[in-house]
Design a protein around this nucleic acid. Structure first.
Length: 850
DNA sequence: AAGTTGGAAGTTTTT
DNA sequence: CTTCCAACTT
């Protein structure tokens, strides 16, 4: 062992070695981002095996299959095939329940309901008992039940708080929902943990047995465990207290799912004999990136003080950029990525873009696709959420577990069998009356008096077909699926139409079959229908991410945890997005949002750009944004900042209200101003690069009036993006030097980029604004229209002889200006169409900075 | 019974 | 903007 041991340790630091060598007793590894945590855990496991711990006594728990697979692979590299069980929490619980489920009323072929299934089950419960929900949604009730389950509160244990109407409703529904799940031999996600925890609490002999089986347990991402998981770990570590947990309180981002950051903060109280190892050296990021992360996270109070350090070279500054519009944001990022890839400085796989909400990926996708940049969106559920896939899975579920009523209802009439709602209701009534599942009721359709004629015949046919399919349950999954296709004709129906969409669906079904075939090959004897369905139910988003695929990665900040990329973009640092509007109520929610941002920042190895947009569309409307408060918490003097900055002096007075001119964010005040709004402020905006003055990054006259309450004026909110004028190409990540030189010269314009972008080129001629009428006509591309969209500009922004651009008429030169004040009018000579007159206060003219 | 249409509502993160 | 659901038509 000596030789192996020394080779194994040679690449580790002292702190890491001490963690690796602590095999017995509780161990807490506080591992900062990029501190080589996975290496430590795998080396530690390898060390245990070499020290003689039987591999089957070791259990490694992670949150995602991706993480579990990686551990497995890396362990294999160290010690070869070992037989250590590496699993996600949920999968571990599922396996445990398939063996011991009888203690909690489950048969081994139970079904795992996903979120949609759970919601259907809840809705069925509500419908069946005719509950009045008042103002509450099924989802709110489900969330509450989920919360209770995470706290291991059973249906019969729930104490309502006085004066909480939701509690009262939940108290009545929860037991019935739970009863329905058990009757269907089904569990929801939370049940997987709840049942196992209860099983261990209520059955000392089982607890003892499992404790002895898993004598060495190690847990990844411990900061994200909830109470149920905590109890499970505790119960499994009573006789054999060899519990090693790894985590970072600063990366706890699943509080909303019941994760309790106290689990890690209080670990030493729970296990007083704990060995604590701190891994604070970061091997991933440059000092510049690390400092931004460190500076930010200092604002949190709920944490263990930790100081990240690194040996790495300083690298380039982190960029902080404000874009005029979200289209600019995504386009500039996409162009930047495009350049990096085409000039060979980066591979697509080196680059990632993170966002707070999935909906933000849409624009990014569009921009990347336009430039032909390969990308992958990390959203693992997507495939399994497709209708056709869910339908076939429902057949599989029903074959595996005939009591799965949700599956039954899903496919009883898919493909169409002329079985309608009335018929189904009659089956349900019978099932309810006799306490049987829907499939059994269907089998007994002869006995259902209300059914007759064709309805009865069709039901019977369906039930008999299901019984035939049931006989295939023990065959290979791919065989079962093939038989489903044959018996139901589902795939043929799709192929029989000319419909392109149906063809795609059929192709997806082929893919499903292929995947099942691969599963059969991979798992062999260890596979089987229930294992397969577990796989399908317990995928996490990040599981779908393919590290080796040479594509730009797009993912949520949540999904990004545990990963790293040389180049990272984080977008939409805006109030209400990050921090998210639904997570701004309490300090602890804000702190979690801050940790989420911290996680995003610390994924970056070499380059990082953080951006926001001055406008963002939501629900199809364009709104002005407020910068995220987190942006104020960054060490701006160490960063490369491209933010619009208020310069009231531009127009000689403080027409836009009082503000603290030293504070970039004081412009927030202007979002309240119904007349000039922030857009006016942005007009005058200068860009602050490293706190120096105007650099011309933002054009004058890109002002857009807006109404906070768009409806009140009868005019819809702005529905098109405010465009960037030519020559105002924003700095991007790979353009660091350009941005910095601007800074140093203090020059007003970026002549280099204005030369690149000719006025009138597609990227610079997007319409400033469209009226509702234009929208209706689909006039998006700046064709001349009679109606001039109203744009307000500060009067003094124009002067004779100035070059201007108009979204419809293109480029022109101002000939003269008349009648000063609010009716100030300009006569403009357009290159394309000749002279035109405009009232300056209400026209979309913008100066072209020369 | 099935398909179509209209309106309303909801939109965080995910095992 | 999207999705879901209810009411309507065929």
């Amino acid at each position: 062992m000596g030789i192996i041991e020394s080779r194994m340790f040679e690449s580790l630091t002292e702190a890491q070695i001490s963690a690796v060598k602590t095999v017995d007793g509780p161990l807490l590894i506080l591992a900062g981002p990029g501190s080589g945590k996975t290496r430590v855990v795998t080396h530690r496991t390898a060390f245990m095996i070499q020290s003689g711990v039987p591999a089957r006594r070791i259990l490694t728990l992670t949150f995602t299959n991706k993480a579990a697979d990686e551990m497995q692979t890396r362990l294999k590299d160290l010690v070869g095939e070992s037989g250590v069980w590496t699993s996600t929490f949920h999968k571990f619980c599922s396996r445990t329940l398939r063996a011991y489920g009888d203690h909690v009323g489950l048969e081994e072929n139970f079904t795992i309901y996903d979120a949609a299934d759970s919601q259907k089950a809840l809705k069925q419960t509500i419908e069946e008992h005719r509950f009045e929900l008042f103002k509450y949604s099924p989802n709110q009730i489900l969330n509450k039940i989920s919360e209770l389950k995470n706290q291991l509160v059973n249906a019969d244990e729930f104490q309502t708080r006085p004066g909480a109407p939701l509690d009262a409703i939940v108290q009545r529904i929860y037991p019935l929902y739970q009863k329905r799940l058990l009757q269907s031999n089904a569990v929801d996600f939370d049940d997987l943990l709840l049942h196992v925890a209860k099983l261990l609490i209520d059955n000392p002999e089982v607890r003892q047995e499992l404790d002895a089986r898993y004598q060495y347990i190690s847990v990844d991402e411990y900061q994200d465990t909830n109470y149920a998981q905590y109890v499970i770990l505790k119960m499994l570590s009573m006789d054999y207290r060899n519990l090693a947990v790894t985590g970072d309180p600063d990366q706890s981002i699943y509080g909303w799912r019941g994760a309790n950051i106290r689990n890690i903060l209080d670990f030493e109280k729970d296990f007083p004999e704990t060995t604590v190892v701190r891994l604070e050296q970061n091997y991933r990021s440059t000092p510049n990136i690390l400092e931004v992360a460190d500076h930010l996270i200092e604002y949190n109070t709920q944490r263990k003080e930790k100081h990240l350090f690194t040996d790495r070279k300083e690298g380039i500054p982190v960029k902080l950029v404000a874009f005029p519009s979200q289209n600019d944001e995504v386009n500039v990022i996409a162009e930047s990525i495009h350049r990096q890839i085409t000039n060979g400085s980066r591979n697509a796989r080196d680059i990632a873009i993170f966002y707070r909400t999935n909906s933000l990926s849409r624009n990014l996708e569009h921009s990347l696709r336009t430039l032909g940049i390969p990308y992958q969106i990390v959203k693992g559920h997507e495939f399994y959420q497709r209708r056709e896939v869910k339908d076939i899975l429902a057949y599989l579920h029903l074959i595996n577990n005939p009591r799965n009523d949700v599956a039954f209802e899903r496919i009883i009439n898919v493909p169409s069998r002329k079985i309608g709602k009335v018929t189904i209701d009659r089956i349900k009534a019978y099932a309810h009356q006799f306490g049987v599942c829907l499939l059994e009721a269907a089998l007994n359709c002869e006995k259902i008096a209300t059914l007759k004629g064709n309805a009865k015949k069709n039901i019977k046919k369906f039930a008999e077909m299901m019984m035939r399919l049931r006989e295939t349950a023990t065959e290979l999954v791919s065989t079962i699926i093939t038989k489903i296709y044959l018996e139901t004709g589902y795939r043929d129906v799709l192929l029989s139409t000319e419909n392109q969409e149906d063809a795609e669906r059929a192709a997806n079904l082929d893919e499903l079959l292929n995947a099942a075939h691969e599963f059969d090959l991979e798992y062999g004897e260890l596979g089987g229908l229930d294992i397969y369905l577990d796989q399908a139910s317990l995928v996490s988003d990040v599981d779908a991410w393919d590290q080796d695929d040479d594509k730009v990665t797009l993912m949520t900040l949540h999904a990004a945890k545990g990963l790293e990329f040389p180049v990272v973009y984080i977008v939409a640092l805006e109030d209400g997005i990050l921090p998210h509007s639904r997570s701004m109520e309490t300090d602890s929610e804000i702190e979690e949002e801050r940790r989420l941002f911290f996680v995003g920042i610390t994924r970056a190895m070499e380059e990082l750009q953080i951006s926001r947009s001055l406008y963002r569309s939501q629900k199809g409307r364009l709104w002005p944004t407020i910068p995220s408060t987190f942006l104020m918490e960054l060490p701006r003097e160490k960063m490369e900042v491209h933010e619009p900055r208020r310069a009231g002096s531009e127009f000689g007075d403080d027409a836009f209200g009082t503000m603290d001119s030293d504070d970039d964010y004081s412009q927030q005040d202007h979002y309240q101003d119904p007349v000039f709004g922030d857009a006016a402020a942005d007009d005058s905006a200068t860009t602050n690069v490293d706190e120096t003055e105007f650099t011309g990054q933002f054009p004058k006259g890109d002002g857009i009036p807006f109404e906070i309450f768009g409806e009140q004026t009868g005019r819809p909110p702005i529905e098109s993006e405010p465009a960037v004028a030519s020559g105002d190409r924003l700095p991007d990540l790979e353009d660091a030097s350009a941005g910095l030189s601007l800074d140093s010269t203090g020059e007003e314009t970026d002549s280099k980029s204005s030369a690149e972008t000719t006025p009138g080129s597609p990227s610079s001629s997007a319409p400033l604004i469209q009226t509702a009428a234009e929208m209706l006509e689909g006039n998006h591309d700046g064709e001349a229209v009679d109606q001039e969209p109203p744009i307000q500009l500060p009067p003094s922004a124009f002067s004779p002889n100035m070059l201007v651009s108009h979204p419809s008429y293109g480029v022109g030169r101002i000939l003269s200006i008349s009648a000063a004040g609010s009716k100030e009018t300009a006569t403009v000579d357009f290159v394309a169409i000749g002279q035109k007159k405009f009232v300056l206060a209400f026209c979309p003219l913008r100066p072209i900075v020369e």
